[in-house]
Amino acid sequence: MAAIESALLQTGRLDTLARQDTAVHRIDPRAKVITTACFVLLVVSFDKYTVAAMIPFLVYPLALLTVGRVPPGFVLTRLALVSPFAVVIGVFNPLIDHEPMVRLGPVVITGGWLSFASILLRFLLTLSAALLLIATTGFNRVCLALERFRVPPVFVVQLLLLYRYLFVLAREAARVLRAYRLRAIRSRGVSLRVYGSLVGSLLLRTLDRGQRVYTAMGCRGFNGILHPSIPLRFRTVDAAFVFGWCAFFIVARLYPLPQHLGHAVLEFLS
């Protein structure tokens, strides 16, 4: 699957971005995880026809993008690669819901289009928040945060190892696949009969590697718990980050800020 392949390759780029040193990167991973959770929860809690009142929420990803020095094009291309389940499902809304809801002069917008626009906006907001969490924190520090949130060590250990061997195994699979394609020029995919042995042998090598990794860890005294050597410190800045953003989210959730702003400006003009 080309999408997965290029996504995997780009994941290395995400890692590089995460190793930058900016104000956002320096925020404690726990603070960013909490803030992201609050953000997603509040975005999702909007009424299905909401579009305008959700706009202020764009400020958060925009802020992370700029202060965290993440190229916007990078986030957008990654969103384009995403499995479009939400969009596919959302596109039915305009077909089903014909109730006119908004009138702008002669143009009437139906509830279906409104809720579809809302779905697209939710899509953009929630997924960019997840990507930016990684781009400004890095996977390992997110894992560290999980450990501090008392997630069981066995889960954290295998999560770290999964990430670690993602690239190694992806390269291995890519090599196998390249070798196959060079000798099977016409076929679109691997034939089912070959697939069993091709993926099976990849799996056997993976099992062997699992054994070797376990042995190597055992040789250095591993007993099921990783000892993080980077201490995490939750500073005042981190608390301020959490409270500041969450307060903003809640205000934006309770009051349709763009609406108020628009009214105020129109009143001032008239």
Partner: peptide, 9 residues
């Protein structure tokens, strides 16, 4: 993940 890169017909 890596197995998902390999498509079958």
């Amino acid at each position: 993940f890596s197995a998902q890169m390999i498509n079958f017909a």
